[in-house]
Design a protein around this nucleic acid. Structure first.
Ligand SMILES: [Zn+2]
Ligand SMILES: [Zn+2]
Ligand SMILES: [Zn+2]
Ligand SMILES: [Zn+2]
Lengths: 154, 154
DNA sequence: CAGATATTGATAATCTTTATCAAATAATAA
DNA sequence: TTATTATTTGATAAAGATTATCAATATCTG
């Protein structure tokens, strides 16, 4: 739902609406978030910015990610070990497939989630606001290299 | 799948099999985990133990939870803010409904998750090992008190 | 009971995220 | 363009949860 360019403009709108300033650092962070498909960490974003912004502070990345989260323009995929990841392409809840080996995260196309939410509401009485669905496994690349190491592959 | 008593014995079996000692502290932690339905935090377990074990160290609770996790006998429901919760009744993946207000966590009965895993495998090529499904919302109790505050309720 | 090993308690270390604050910058209007 | 004001930045300290360390203690086996 929206190209990186569209997402970029949409986020700029939100920022202007909420009277936030458009600093070069902020724009660069947004640029990375909407163009990256890898669900980067704050650290990864920070490193990608080193070239263009050698004086960029890590705190600035954290602050802007928090801001974009509060505006509903970035989805946080948080983990208990602190290796949090961010999706600026799809800021709404969606399932993820996570490789436990290389930590790759991809967005699988899935249907049939809406009725699950309805079921939960019925059985618990909760008013459901959002959800999170993660599948943990081993990606194709890692499966392949695993087989090569074991001498099973061709 | 199994009463608290059965779970308790099952975990003791696993510990004996893996040559772990059955200390009073360890047994008390397991007792709390299999009898609690509230998905307690480490801190909560620690506080529940204060009465019977005034000298119990917080590190001991952490260590034993880690051990039981590694034995597959407790399910960790981790959150990025560090408010991790533990389920000793159902150590296998299952959906949770989480109240964002009072932090209550309950186990809703849900079906139709098996085919989702198959779908993810098909579309991503991942070998899926486990999953996690959380629904975030407001529980019945909190909805009620919310309405009372607003003067909407009877 | 004795010996070997694992566990505990106390505390330091680690690591990610948040808070702090002076200096710098963006937005706005004169 | 410049001045004014509020926001943002960079650097660093602080916070908070989990893990590591290590001497003392307790368990298990025989
Ligand atoms: Zn992988
Ligand atoms: Zn995603
Ligand atoms: Zn509640
Ligand atoms: Zn549960």
């Amino acid at each position: 739902m929206g190209s990186p360019q569209q997402r970029y403009q949409q986020i700029l709108c939100k920022l202007r609406e909420s009277n936030h300033k458009l600093t070069p650092q902020r724009l660069a962070i947004i640029d990375i978030l909407v163009h990256s498909r890898s669900h980067p960490t704050v650290e990864a974003i920070f490193e990608m910015l080193q070239e263009d912004f050698p004086t960029m502070s890590l705190a600035t990345v954290y602050r802007n990610v928090v801001l974009l989260k509060s505006l509903g323009e970035v989805l946080e995929i948080g983990f208990p070990d602190g290796s949090n990841r961010y999706d600026g392409n799809k800021p709404y809840p969606h399932p993820h497939a996570i490789c436990v080996r290389c930590k790759k995260i991809v967005d699988p196309d899935l249907r049939a989630l809406g009725n699950l939410t309805a079921q939960v509401r019925q059985r618990t009485g909760f008013k459901i606001l959002t959800h999170r669905l993660d599948f943990f496994g081993v990606c194709r690349d890692c499966l392949q290299s695993e087989n090569q190491t074991k001498g099973v592959g061709r």
